[in-house]
C-alpha cells in the first residue's frame, strides 16, 4: 500500500536478569502509519515467530492508555517522541519512512530487567503497600456529594489519581527518582477526607519505602512531569515535601 513505511529497529534483547543483553537490529516493512507502536511490534513478533525465532518480550495490556503496563524507552524518551501519551497511544505516523528507531527498557536499579523490554516495577507496588491505602471501612460507593469535598480539593485529588504507575517518571529522570509517582499517590489521599486518619504515617512510610527501593533523589529537572503520560504536575512533589516535613516535625506518632 502506498504511504506505508519501512523501518529499521534497534531493540534491546536480554534473555533474563542474569544475561548481559545487547541490541539486535530488525527490518520491518510495509508498516501502516495508522498502526500503534505496539501493533508494529506485534507485526515484528509475527515475523520472528514465523521464522522460528524468539519473539520480543514487551509489556502491554489495555492498549488504550489507562493501565500503565506499556513501557519502552523509544529514541531516548519514555513512551516515544510525543507528550502526554503511553506507547500504545503512539502512532507510527510520528515517525518517517526509513527511520531507525532505538527501543530500550526502562533503566533504573529499582526496575531490574526481567526479559528484553520487560522490567520489574514491583518496587512501585511495595511503595503503595507501605502506605498508599486507607484502612477505614468506606462501605459501598457513596451517593454523589454525600461527603462534602471542595471543588478545589476534588480537582487536585483527581489530577493526582490520574497516575497509572507506568514508571515513565523514573525512566525519564536522570536520577531515576520516583518522586513524581510517590507524590501523586500521597497527594491524592491527602486531599480527601478518607485519607486523613493515616495522612502523616502514610507520608513517612511511603517515602521511607521509596528510599529503600534504591530510587535516586529529586533535583527538580522537571523531566518526569514533561514525560508523564498523565501530565502529573510537579506541584505534587512540592506538596509531598511539605507533607513529609510535617509528618516528621509536627506529627506526634512515632
Amino acid at each position: 500500500m502506498s504511504g506505508n513505511m519501512n523501518l529499521t529497529l534497534k531493540v534491546w534483547r536480554q534473555k533474563s536478569n542474569k544475561d548481559k543483553g545487547n541490541f539486535e537490529e530488525f527490518k520491518v516493512n510495509d508498516i501502516s502509519p495508522d498502526m500503534s507502536f505496539l501493533e508494529m511490534f506485534d507485526v515484528l513478533n509475527e515475523q520472528l515467530i514465523s521464522k522460528g525465532n524468539e519473539p520480543i518480550a514487551f509489556d502491554h495490556d489495555c492498549r488504550e492508555g489507562i493501565c500503565g503496563m506499556c513501557s519502552m524507552f523509544i529514541n531516548g524518551r519514555p513512551h516515544g517522541p510525543k507528550e502526554g501519551i503511553t506507547t500504545c497511544q503512539l502512532h507510527m505516523r510520528s515517525f518517517a519512512d526509513g527511520d531507525t528507531i532505538i527501543v530500550e527498557p526502562w533503566r533504573a536499579n529499582a526496575f531490574p530487567v526481567i526479559k528484553d523490554l520487560v522490567v520489574d516495577r514491583s518496587a512501585f507496588d511495595r511503595i503503595v503497600s507501605a502506605g498508599g491505602f486507607v484502612s477505614v471501612n468506606t462501605g459501598n460507593a457513596q451517593d454523589g456529594n454525600a461527603i462534602p469535598i471542595s471543588k478545589n480539593d476534588a480537582d487536585i485529588a483527581f489530577a493526582a489519581a490520574a497516575c497509572i504507575g507506568c514508571g515513565a517518571c523514573v525512566a525519564a529522570c536522570k536520577n531515576a527518582s520516583a518522586m513524581l509517582f510517590v507524590s501523586a499517590k500521597i497527594n491524592q489521599l491527602a486531599h480527601l477526607p478518607q485519607g486523613q486518619p493515616e495522612r502523616m504515617q502514610r507520608a513517612r512510610a511511603m517515602v521511607h519505602q521509596m528510599d529503600k527501593e534504591g530510587f535516586g533523589a529529586c533535583t527538580n529537572t522537571g523531566a518526569c512531569s514533561a514525560e508523564c503520560p498523565k501530565e502529573i504536575s510537579l506541584v505534587n512533589i512540592a506538596a509531598m515535601n511539605c507533607e513529609f516535613v510535617k509528618a516528621n516535625v509536627v506529627d506526634s506518632h512515632e
Partner: peptide, 17 residues
C-alpha cells in the same frame, strides 16, 4: 543519584524534557 541507574541508556534525549 548517578548510582541509581547503573546500566545507562544507549540513547538518552534529555533535552526533550
Amino acid at each position: 543519584n548517578m548510582n541509581a541507574r547503573k546500566v545507562k541508556y544507549y540513547k538518552f534525549n534529555g533535552n526533550a524534557n
